[in-house]
Amino acid sequence: MNNKLKPVTVVINCVIRHDKLKIAKQELYKVIGIVLLKEKACKGIHVHEDPENPNELLIIEQWKNKEIFVGAHMRTQHMIDFLKLAEAFLEKEATFTFWNEIPLDKLNPVI
């Protein structure tokens, strides 16, 4: 199967400006609610904060495939609007990495 069509985990790392953390979390809460309601290709979103630096957030999203995430999802109006808002609270540009799960039987074919 083409890697672009496999289920994908998207890992987003972002650093929020110290004086903008509250608004960043509010806006994340709003957009995540919209994504989970409207985008059936999204299988889940989890937000984590660094206990040493609460202004650093790690967002882990599961999607049907990478093509949907980088294509249709990023072109939705709610994402366009959110990304514009995020410019005001991000310390630096967020990083995105894409991961494919390795099924257990592929780790140890003897199972």
Rank of each mutant, 00 (worst) to 15 (best):
G71D: 01
F82E: 07
T97D: 12
F89Q: 01
N65P: 03
E87H: 15
W99E: 09
G71R: 11
T95H: 09
E93I: 13
K64Q: 12
K84G: 09
I68D: 14
K64P: 07
I59R: 02
V70C: 11
N53L: 15
F98S: 01
L57N: 03
E56F: 01
K92I: 04
F69L: 10
T97F: 08
T97S: 03
E93A: 12
E61L: 06
M79I: 09
A86Y: 09
K64N: 10
N100R: 07
N65A: 12
Q62N: 11
L57R: 05
I60L: 15
F69V: 01
A94V: 03
T97C: 03
Q62R: 15
E101D: 09
L90Y: 00
T76W: 00
E101T: 12
L83N: 08
I68L: 14
E61K: 04
I60N: 08
H73Y: 10
I80P: 07
L57A: 09
T95C: 01
G71H: 11
L83D: 06
F96I: 01
I68G: 03
I59V: 06
W63C: 05
L90G: 01
E87R: 13
F82Q: 07
L57C: 11
F98A: 04
M74N: 10
E87V: 15
T97G: 02
E67Q: 12
L85A: 15
H73R: 03
E61W: 09
K66S: 06
N55D: 10
H73N: 06
P54V: 00
A94M: 07
F89H: 03
E61Y: 01
N100V: 02
A88W: 05
N55T: 03
L90V: 00
E87G: 14
E56T: 06
I68Y: 15
D81P: 09
E87A: 09
E56L: 04
I59C: 04
L90K: 00
N53M: 09
V70T: 12
W63Q: 06
E67M: 13
H78P: 13
K84V: 02
M74V: 02
Q77A: 15
N100P: 04
E101G: 10
K66A: 10
Q77Y: 07
W63L: 12
W63Y: 05
V70S: 11
L90S: 01
R75F: 03
F89L: 00
N55S: 12
T97W: 05
K66L: 07
T97H: 07
H78V: 04
N65V: 10
E67N: 11
F98I: 00
K84H: 13
F96D: 03
F96G: 01
I59Q: 07
V70H: 07
R75D: 09
E67D: 15
R75P: 03
K66G: 02
E91A: 12
A94Q: 07
G71K: 04
E91L: 13
M79S: 08
E61Q: 12
K84R: 02
M79K: 06
L90H: 04
E101M: 06
H73A: 02
T76M: 02
M79H: 03
W63A: 02
V70Y: 08
F98P: 00
F98L: 04
K64Y: 08
F82A: 10
E93G: 11
I59A: 01
K84F: 05
I60M: 05
K92L: 10
F82D: 06
